[in-house]
Nucleic acid binder design. Sequence first.
DNA 1: TCAAGTGATGGGACTTGGTCTCATCAACCG
DNA 2: CGGTTGATGAGACCAAGTCCCATCACTTGA
Lengths: 191, 191
Amino acid sequence: MGRWEPDARDRLVRAALDLFDEQGYENTAVAQIAERAGLTKSTYFRHFRDKREVLFGGQDELVELLVAGIAGTPESAGPLAAVEGALVAIAVTFTEERRANGPRRLAVIAANDELRERDAMKMAGFSSVMQEALRRRGVPELDAAVAVELGVVALRVAYGRWLEAGGDFAEVARRALDEVRIVAAALEGAE
Amino acid sequence: MGRWEPDARDRLVRAALDLFDEQGYENTAVAQIAERAGLTKSTYFRHFRDKREVLFGGQDELVELLVAGIAGTPESAGPLAAVEGALVAIAVTFTEERRANGPRRLAVIAANDELRERDAMKMAGFSSVMQEALRRRGVPELDAAVAVELGVVALRVAYGRWLEAGGDFAEVARRALDEVRIVAAALEGAE
DNA sequence: TCAAGTGATGGGACTTGGTCTCATCAACCG
DNA sequence: CGGTTGATGAGACCAAGTCCCATCACTTGA
């Protein structure tokens, strides 16, 4: 494993975030990101499949944790409990460093359509993986879909609150999902 | 309003769908679509903002209908009822012609990441517009999010069934949403 | 110590998506 | 019949993304 300057990937991520922040995503060329990281365009595309992906690293790890979180919940528990297990399982990835860069990253994504597309796609990917994991436990398709979508709503809420206030993400996520449960139950009564 | 061969936009849509079907989305160049439609690349990009968009026309109309459907539901009704109003409102766009091309279009989209991204983005757009419409009626943010996501699950289910069996989309959507309601209520009991 | 092998990088040609500008041409209007 | 308008054609141009091959740092084995 030959190595020159290590952490090429990290350097690319940092350079990209800085440049996007300074001059906007659209005004930044991939060659420029690579240059600031002391690399070339070729090397950039060896680390990331396209210009957007530099902002969405670590997704594979999240997917694995979500699935493991569902698989690790006792079979006797309902689908919503399994989804809660998934949300708690990804808490290990919500580090302080991630929280520090979170707002900047969110601002960059929100400002650009291409990036919002990729974001929506990632979220849809999470949904789809969790639904499959639930179906493998014998949960009917519609039940799985509803449980997962409620979980995704809770995830969004929890992420926002965690970025603002910090704390243990697992705890924040559990509380958010409880609120979603209550709201979902009340919706029925309101009809 | 000068006109030569009319329906340039429709011709582009048909040419694109045919070509994507025949040789795949990635193996088709925009110039080729334009050529088959008897036009040029320049004209293509005057009708669609990018290569993907040719498969996602009519979204603005859907958004308007969704919002109108929510606004047209009595204030006394709960958020889920308003979402049902939105689903019923878009039924007018589910024509026989759309049903004929639906499976082919779905197959093309499913086979390509870029297109699935655009699809996820469109869906997220629908969610966001409906949530805003609900919040304008005074529905709390979390309630709006939950109601809308349940509605989107119902919409997906209904679309699949309508493609298979046809019939009145409004009716199919209402039934799907009822099932989602039941499932959501049962999820609570299962914990 | 040195030669071969390996993995990451550099470099440049090439295709295509997408933008921009200017010329053209058909219809409409007075 | 001349001017205007709106849609189109033509082509230059830039950046994203792919491919192929050369190169260099480091490792391994004799």
